[in-house]
């Protein structure tokens, strides 16, 4: 054994704890935790606070498990893309088989424990989410169709429904609306990203819309999906999920989001190249704020309801 092999962090089995944690895609987990938390608190049925905490934790672990399984399966294309080349499996810090084992064990653990802590509808929804993300999106859609993130986006949209189901034991119009909000938000969010990390998807031959239909078509798709999303998001303000705070948030953010989409649509590729994709990057950042603000507003509405509702209602 040479010194190099002993000290290289890339040697299998020498991974640090943070490398295993990175397998769980902690940044994606933030979105999962927040939306599941909102889904749970927006539900009319209160849940024991500790069991609620456990439910969110198990949902996060389930989301992390699907991230680990995604990294196991996608290690070949992750290695080709600048954005993902530093992940633990392509760099060799964690062996692919380890990622698979961790993903499988955590999947089973999170589903069983969510079922035990709350109910089996929530556990079943979490199991379906993991299956959808790993098998339907990662193994099938991602490499075969430009609609990959449109359909695959469903996986990221399930957490608020799981949170709601954990509290109430059922599925309702409100939880489906929260699902639809994230589902419709995913395509413009990812297509904006695909516009400014363009070389990555080309190199990995992932059939993103930018690769299969061109960048002009992607810009058109962004504005169409943003318009549909805006109609859904503002319309939700008139349902049981919404209220004045939500509606005000939705109107302002959707106006900004639509303006961003129009700006992207009006730009040519040369203009975007010239300024380093400033507008596309701004739209991507706004999309993160967009989702957090909408779910934050739903949370505020739920809080107001718990405190007795609006004085004029």
């Amino acid at each position: 054994m040479t010194d190099a092999s002993v000290t290289s962090p890339a040697q299998t089995g020498d991974a640090e704890f943070k490398d295993y944690f990175a397998l769980l895609k902690p940044r994606v987990m933030t979105l999962v935790v927040f939306t599941a938390f909102v889904g749970m608190l927006a539900a009319p049925t209160p849940i024991n606070p500790f069991l609620g905490f456990c439910a969110i934790l198990f949902i996060a672990v389930g989301g992390g498990a699907s991230g680990a399984l995604n990294m196991w399966y996608d290690a070949d294309i992750d290695a080709l893309m600048k954005r993902t080349a530093g992940r633990p499996v392509p760099t060799g810090r964690v062996d692919a088989s380890e990622a698979l084992a961790i993903g499988l064990v955590l999947s089973g653990f999170s589903v069983v424990f969510l079922g035990l802590a709350t109910n089996w509808l929530a556990g079943g929804l979490l199991a379906f989410t993991i299956f959808f993300y790993v098998v339907i999106y990662t193994m099938w859609l991602k490499r075969s169709t430009p609609q990959n993130i449109v359909i695959g986006g469903a996986a990221g949209a399930f957490p608020p429904m799981i949170g709601w189901a954990a509290a109430t034991g059922d599925i309702s119009v409100a939880s489906v609306l929260m699902f639809c909000l994230t589902f419709m938000w995913t395509p413009p969010h990812f297509w904006a990203l695909a516009l400014f990390v363009k070389g990555d998807y080309d190199k990995a031959t992932v059939p993103m819309l930018t690769v299969t239909h061109g960048r002009r078509a992607t810009r058109v798709h962004i504005i169409v999906y943003t318009a549909l999303l805006a109609a859904l998001a503002v319309g939700t303000g008139f349902t049981q999920v919404g209220g004045p705070v939500y509606l005000a948030t939705a109107v302002v953010l959707n106006a900004l989001f639509l303006k961003g989409a129009v700006d992207i649509w009006r730009r040519t590729e040369d203009q975007a190249e010239a300024d380093g994709y400033v507008t596309e990057k701004k739209f991507f950042k706004l999309s993160l704020l967009y989702l957090f603000a909408h779910f934050g507003a739903i949370l505020i509405e739920a809080g107001i309801d718990r405190l007795g509702g609006y004085p004029w209602a």
Binding site: P9, D14, A15, E16, F17, Y20, F21, N48, F50, L51, C54, L57, L116, A117
Partner: peptide, 27 residues
């Protein structure tokens, strides 16, 4: 590196026990 990893696994196990205990009490 290995010590850090073992400490991490230890903490996760301790947290798991605490969660099981808490869930039992809550249930």
């Amino acid at each position: 590196r290995r010590r850090g990893r073992n400490a991490g696994v230890g903490l996760v196990l301790a947290a798991f026990i605490a969660i099981l205990f808490g869930m039992t009490i809550a249930k």
